[in-house]
């Protein structure tokens, strides 16, 4: 029960045991626990980051969708405008074409009327000359009175 040399042995044993415990127990296992702690922390922060990124992506997706909708609306509007323009264009062109055709027809008609009138005048002149020739028979020489006949024709 008294202090004796056992004390020295126990001190040596104690010191050695501390060394061993540090070597085989505290060292490796606390390192392992630290690593695990770090891994868990990393995982949590990664999850947090992922969540944040997801939120961001959702927000961006919404924006893109909105933009796309707007663009689609724009395109539809433009297409409608363009269609209207084309229809208007076609209308004006058709109107012009119709006017042109009508004008051409009228001009042709007028020409033909004029030609017919000319011909008719000629025919009437001939008829008048023939009639007059028949009436006057010999007295009137067609070649001799050509200028008189022409004047007549012009007066018709």
């Amino acid at each position: 029960m008294s202090i004796n040399a056992t004390l020295l042995i126990q001190i040596i044993a104690f010191v050695l045991l501390i060394w061993f415990v540090n070597k085989v127990l505290w060292g490796p296992i606390s390192k392992l626990m630290e690593e695990r702690q770090k891994r868990i922390a990393d995982g949590l922060s990664a999850a947090e980051k992922g969540k944040r990124e997801l939120e961001l992506a959702e927000k961006r997706a919404k924006e893109v969708l909105k933009e796309a909708k707007e663009q689609a609306q724009n395109i539809i509007g433009q297409a409608e405008k363009r269609a209207n323009e084309i229809v208007d264009d076609a209308k004006t062109k058709a109107q012009e074409e119709a006017d042109r055709v009508r004008a051409g027809a009228q001009a042709e008609l007028a020409q033909e009327v004029a030609a017919a009138r000319e011909q008719l005048r000629g025919d009437v002149a001939k008829l008048a000359v023939a009639g007059a020739g028949q009436i006057l028979a010999v007295e009137i020489d067609a070649a001799k009175h050509q200028d008189i006949l022409d004047r007549l024709v012009k007066q018709i």
Binding site: M1, S2, I3, N4, T6, L7, L8, I9, Q10, I11, A13, F14, V15
Partner: peptide
């Protein structure tokens, strides 16, 4: 006492 004092003295 040797054991406890050994640790205490260390």
């Amino acid at each position: 006492l040797n054991t406890t004092m050994a640790m205490a003295l260390s």
